[in-house]
């Protein structure tokens, strides 16, 4: 190993360490007994007790979960139909469709959110949890589509042809052959769609009705106050642990696929 390689190695290890520091600090301060200072004054579990007794945290957590479940089911359903059409049939405008489906991922979310809000106002649809769900589905279709299409394009259509030869009609073939083969892709897509919705802040914030908050919206209302409040740290610690759990499942999934 040359000298420059050693320097590179040390640098990489340092960088990998430093990017964990802010999150580590966040967790450490969730046990701080001083409520609004960035100095560690003593260990306490008080912040967690207060958090778990907070009605708003629970309701926003519950909202995030059910919104994400509805969003996931709808967007994965749409994505399965789309991927099936794109990988099994030839038609005009396929490339354009493929490109159009990338747009919801590329467009900055703030613009997506404001145009959707304006749309609801002009059309006269009152804001409700369903307006949030609609907004989330609009970008989640693309995420789910990319994953499921990749899985669909990656396996041999001969399995389907064999089933057809043996006398199964197209619907039966789809449910008995295609869907089981697609399952890992569908699970991976569901996981990504769920996390994207559960984690979303901008679209939820713009298209939510007054008084309705998801977890990220609640986090924002706490984080955008001046200074620091350790109340949020306890919540953050739990959310971070959930995020790492999701990350772990995602890695397992990738190995499995």
């Amino acid at each position: 190993m040359s000298k420059s390689d050693v320097i590179l190695k040390i640098y990489t290890i340092l960088l990998l360490g430093i990017i964990y520091v802010p999150i580590g600090v966040l967790i450490v301060f969730s046990f701080n007994n001083s409520r609004n200072r960035a100095v560690f004054t003593g260990f306490t579990l008080e912040n967690y007790y207060r958090l778990l007794a907070d009605e708003r945290v629970w309701s926003s957590f519950y909202n995030s979960i059910w919104v994400a479940i509805v969003v996931t089911i709808a967007s994965v359903f749409f994505a399965i139909l789309l991927s099936y059409a794109v990988t099994r049939y030839d038609f005009k405008g396929k490339d354009i469709l493929d490109m159009l489906l990338l747009i919801p991922i590329i467009i900055p979310e703030i613009v997506e959110a404001l145009t959707l809000l304006l749309f609801f106002i002009i059309i006269g649809i009152p804001l409700s949890p369903w307006t949030i769900i609609i907004g989330h589905i609009a970008f989640d279709i693309s995420f789910a589509y990319l994953v499921i299409k990749a899985r669909m394009a990656g396996y041999d259509p001969q399995y389907e042809e064999a089933a057809r030869t043996l006398g199964a009609d197209e619907l039966k073939t789809f449910f008995r052959v295609t869907l089981p083969i697609l399952l890992p892709g569908i699970i991976a897509a569901s996981l990504i769609a769920f996390v994207e919705s559960y984690d979303d802040f901008i679209k939820s914030y713009f298209t939510r009705p007054g008084g309705f908050s998801t977890l990220p919206v609640h986090i924002w209302s706490m984080a955008s106050r001046r200074g620091v409040t350790v109340d949020l740290n306890a919540l953050a610690t739990i959310v971070v642990i959930i995020a790492i759990f999701f990350a772990y499942i995602r890695i397992k999934m990738e190995r499995w696929m």
């Binding site: 964990y20 802010p22 999150i23 301060f29 924002w220 953050a236 959310v239 971070v240 995020a243």
Partner: peptide, 15 residues
């Protein structure tokens, strides 16, 4: 670390 919610990552930098 980048799988952690964007808001929280940003908030953590306050500390």
């Amino acid at each position: 670390p980048f799988w952690v919610n964007f808001l929280l990552r940003t908030y953590s930098m306050k500390f």
